[in-house]
Design a protein around this nucleic acid. Structure first.
Lengths: 388, 388
DNA sequence: AATCAATACTTGAAGAAGTTAAATATTCGC
DNA sequence: GCGAATATTTAACTTCTTCAAGTATTGATT
């Protein structure tokens, strides 16, 4: 009936959910604006919003300075009470767990990291447990208002059951991570693929806000992509979606570990870049950092490796734009530490390969630190509170 | 209140729409099955279905032979009364208009064609008008039950307003085709992009039935793709979606008329195939039919052109599978008259480039005659009756 | 043949969610 | 202070849905 706080998620009329998500993602809004936006009567908004206010999720902002033509009663916009509830988000990588505490608006309140040296399920759970303790310790706010934990890791994950079907880098198969972490921490846990989590965060709290369709491309060891189409995250019927890393961009290119040929990842993945840079320089122990250094210093051969990689990424992004036509695309990831070497090549290649109006799709290219990935996990947790 | 017949579309409770579309697309279903499928109580189904039966859209099937464990009252499944309403569908090409009459279940009742030699708006409207007359003439059923006409043509089309924003092959810009055709014929008109229309038809009445996500690839002069994701047709924010023809598959490939390089269409489009076959044979006036003939007769050089084209198409389809992970993919189009030359190469290339489980996505490769495209237009018209 | 269990469907009361219309609140410009 | 403009609230009413109980129709069991 009325939205509930603790265990379960938000129940209540559909209008309440719609109102809450709109206020959450689109900042303070007046009731009339909400009504127009959601196709409801303003009476319905008033009614549905009251229990949300009573429970402390929303509050009325002081009447702000008027903007319009002038006359009329000023609006008292509804805003989210961000400190009503806090969320933990943890990103699990092969050698580290990174965690953050976020408020209801997904603003980071505290963060922490712990090294991970054993991919065993139990060892990971232990480190995640210690990390949450660290986060509770570092969190200055009201700890009794933390009830949820989001986990994000790469691999094939069933968000609805919290099951890790397959995680290549941890060598896990069918691990019920959600249930295990819930037992360990006593929190309500959500588990999601890391790229999808980051996409969800950008969709609700970042550049994707308000977009009906939206894509996020991550560049690093792997090259991934999260897609939002018609307002919903794309999941893929066979558990595969957004596998942008294995699009073919060069039929005569190098063989890829996936069995294909000329895949984006086999040209622009971190490993591929390092391998090529080693080959070009004749230095078999070159690291990616050194390769970036050489390219920045103007080493022509190495520079060309990055140029080619940027071109391949641009083609892949153009493929996304041509196929699903998102409102905007964000390009990001660890690999973009070398942002300056990629940026213009990605754009050039994208503009050449994007078909017609698809080239008008705005591209944001910016690096995101690992804390942002953890924030993605928290964002999924926030979504699970709102839309169960 | 109750579903209306004539001018407007189907109104009524959301449940009525859901019930009708489910019965329409998933064949006869009992009320309990509908309730389970749609998450309603069976009481709701009973009530919402009654007006649909009263108005003649649905009817009860005779209790069929029982199948289950045995006991219990036998179901009286609901089925669509296909002859309740008929629909015209017309596909407009550069040199022809092709039309069909379909019943409510999108089964073709009659068809007709007329040549088109003038791309002028008025000339096209005239031919469409004559074609509808021909169709009425050829249609054996009750003509008073035809109220709707669907038009399909390639280009950038705004379905909601019936506006043709841009049609390259007719050289039209911003033609309010829906309104004009409605004036001319007195019917309620829908206009949709041809590939999207065909996709809609397959989604509701063909192989895409029941699939949450689904893709249709058409091969011909252009190479296109219609996408259904999360149960909805993908439209693209900038008016571009499914532009599979301009994905890059060979960074070192030929320049494409779109300004890009190594696009699928520049390798596997009909024009590209003809050009290559001419080059390989040294016969500058070779036609596509002759090229197909040579390949079938075993001409190695020409054969290789088709092999390469099939490979490019396979890569493009793999890109769709990797990115959106549809439940299944149908490959079709005029170009597939040479089906036998493509089939195995498309599959091989698809399986190599599809990533992991995406390779499990079933592929149907089959040619579709132009009448099927017209049927697509009719299917959109049917949809517009049901979901306005 | 009578009865029971199982399943499908129908009915009527009750409730949830939303709408419309009218009342109330608050501001600006005069 | 008054009226026009806009925002919000309230109350009455509509619509859609569910719930709980009842009816219908069958196969299996006694």
């Amino acid at each position: 009936m009325f939205p509930e706080i603790d265990a379960g998620a938000f129940s209540g009329p559909p209008a309440a959910t719609a109102i809450f998500t709109t206020v959450l993602t689109e900042g303070p809004v007046s009731r009339v604006a909400l009504a127009r936006r959601l196709g409801l009567s303003s009476a319905a908004v008033t009614k549905a919003a009251r229990p949300l206010i009573d429970l402390g999720y929303l509050h009325e902002l002081a009447a702000t300075e008027r903007s319009g033509p002038g006359a009329g009663r000023p609006a008292s916009p509804l805003a989210v009470r961000a400190e009503r509830e806090f969320f933990l988000g943890v990103k699990i990588t092969a050698d580290e767990v990174i965690g953050v505490v976020c408020d209801l608006r997904a603003q980071v309140q505290a963060s922490a990291r712990r090294p991970l040296d054993d991919p065993d399920v139990d060892a990971v759970l232990t480190e995640v447990g210690r990390l949450t303790d660290d986060l509770f310790g570092a969190f200055p706010g009201d700890r009794t208002r933390v009830h949820r934990l989001g986990l994000a890791l790469s691999g094939d994950i069933d968000r609805s059951t919290g099951l890790v079907r397959y995680s290549p880098f941890l060598h896990w198969r069918d691990v019920p991570l959600g249930r295990l972490a819930a037992q360990r921490t006593g929190l309500t846990v959500t588990v999601e693929n890391d790229v999808k989590a980051l996409t969800a965060a950008e969709h609700w709290f970042g550049e994707g806000v308000g977009a009906e369709s939206f894509a996020l491309v991550t560049v690093g060891t792997g090259i991934g992509c999260g897609l939002v189409v018609n307002g919903r995250l794309v999941s893929g019927s066979h558990g595969v979606a957004g596998e942008i890393g294995h699009l073919t961009v060069d039929a005569t290119g190098p063989d890829c570990h996936c069995g294909g040929r000329g895949c984006v990842e086999s040209i622009a993945g971190t490993d591929a870049i390092v391998a090529q840079a080693r080959h070009r320089t004749g230095r078999p122990d070159l690291t990616i950092a050194e390769a970036v250094g050489l390219a920045r210093a103007g080493h022509e051969e190495v520079r060309r490796v990055f140029t080619r990689a940027g071109g391949a990424i641009g083609c892949a992004i153009a493929a996304v734009a041509n196929l699903v036509g998102p409102t905007r695309i964000v390009v990001s990831g660890e690999g973009l530490a070398a942002y300056d070497l990629f940026d213009s090549h990605i754009r050039t290649s994208f503009e050449r390969q994007a078909f017609g109006a698809a080239a008008r799709c705005p591209l944001s290219i910016r690096p995101l630190p690992f804390e942002e990935w953890a924030r993605g996990a928290a964002a999924v947790s926030i979504q699970s509170l709102v839309v169960p």
